[in-house]
């Protein structure tokens, strides 16, 4: 029985080889990597076509009498965005928020990542990894829901304050609550982008700095931090762009009063039904995001974000 199974497998493999050789002769081999990349390129093409659609919609203003988008192209939507203070304040709120969130995330993710990479205890490392992955894998909505339970007016924190006789404080539906939720959401991303860069720093480097008389703080500033730059760039970029464009945290923890750009876009599509306006806002967000990524890439390189063979 095992013998016949073997032979069948051989025959199947021979058949496969013959089939592959027939449809893909050897002299085509130079095209092979492109064929392998084709499905991925086609999938991402969906996004590109989607962006073109958005571009098309963004150039059509909504006709208020018929509630149909205009047939002709105009820059009306963009004009309205740039002259309306409301959008400027939303854009400013999102940009400022994402910068603050990025700074906080990097500061707190660094020691976590460092301890995780450097600890000699495999058990502690595993614990830190699990504590990191669990919230990462739970999803934003559930985490935001957890914060509603903790920070709400009848939430855990206020009930605890009540026990010691402090009146309830409004902890939710304000800017700090949104930023706090975002930091909590982004820390796993930051740690995971930092960790490979920290692993790449040989521990002997730190020992060497120590034996040359640097205390741990100076070692950190002059040795660890500069060598961790690819990780900091990768982590910073991911956190910056993800928090700039986040929807769920401002929606749930901001309670509608702390909208980020993504919330404004959603409202244009689903509340005001002004598709052109929403599309224009989307394109501006894509532009601002790409600009940020481009600036960081040209200044610092791709960091730990690079894929493929030549990593810097």
């Amino acid at each position: 029985m095992p013998k016949s199974a073997y032979l069948l497998r051989w025959r199947v493999m021979d058949g496969l080889e013959a089939l592959v050789a027939a449809i893909w002769p050897r002299h085509f081999h130079r095209a092979l990597p492109y064929v392998m990349l084709l499905p991925a390129v086609l999938l991402v093409l969906l996004l590109v076509i989607g962006m073109i659609q958005i571009g098309d919609s963004s150039a059509r203003t909504l006709d208020r009498s018929t509630f149909l988008p205009s047939d002709f192209y105009t820059a009306g939507n963009y004009q309205r965005i740039f002259t309306d203070g409301l959008y400027w304040s939303i854009l400013w709120r999102s940009l400022l928020g994402s910068v603050i969130v990025t700074a906080l995330c990097l500061v707190f993710a660094f020691p976590y990542s460092y301890l995780m990479v450097r600890t000699p205890s495999a058990l502690l490392r595993k614990f830190l990894l699990i504590a990191l992955f669990l919230p990462f894998f739970i999803g934003q909505v559930v985490r935001a829901y957890g914060w509603l339970i903790i920070l709400g007016n009848q939430g855990v924190v206020n009930e605890m304050l009540g026990l010691i006789g402090v009146a309830p404080i409004r902890l939710l539906y304000n800017y700090p609550a949104v930023l706090f939720g975002l930091v909590q959401y982004m820390i796993p991303f930051a740690v995971l982008m930092l960790a490979p860069a920290l692993t790449a720093i040989p521990e002997e480097m730190e020992s060497a700095a120590n034996s040359l008389g640097a205390n741990w703080w100076r070692t950190f500033i002059h040795v660890v931090l500069p060598m961790a730059r690819p990780g900091l760039v990768g982590a910073g970029l991911v956190v910056l762009t993800l928090s700039l464009t986040d929807f769920a945290m401002p929606a749930i923890l901001g309670g509608g009063s702390q909208d980020f750009i993504a919330n404004a876009i959603y409202d244009q599509f689903f509340r005001t039904s002004d598709q052109g306006m929403g599309a224009a806002l989307t394109l501006i967000l894509v532009g601002v995001g790409s600009l940020l990524v481009g600036v960081v890439f040209t200044l610092f390189g791709a960091g730990t974000l690079a894929m493929g063979r030549d990593r810097k």
């Binding site: 969906l46 996004l47 962006m51 762009t241 876009i265 394109l283 894509v286 995001g289 790409s290 974000l305």
Partner: peptide, 17 residues
């Protein structure tokens, strides 16, 4: 090009799709 899904914000990708 293959990093586009990350550089295009989720709301952009979502609306486009």
């Amino acid at each position: 090009y293959l990093l586009l899904p990350f550089t295009i914000p989720l709301i952009g990708s979502g609306i486009g799709l």
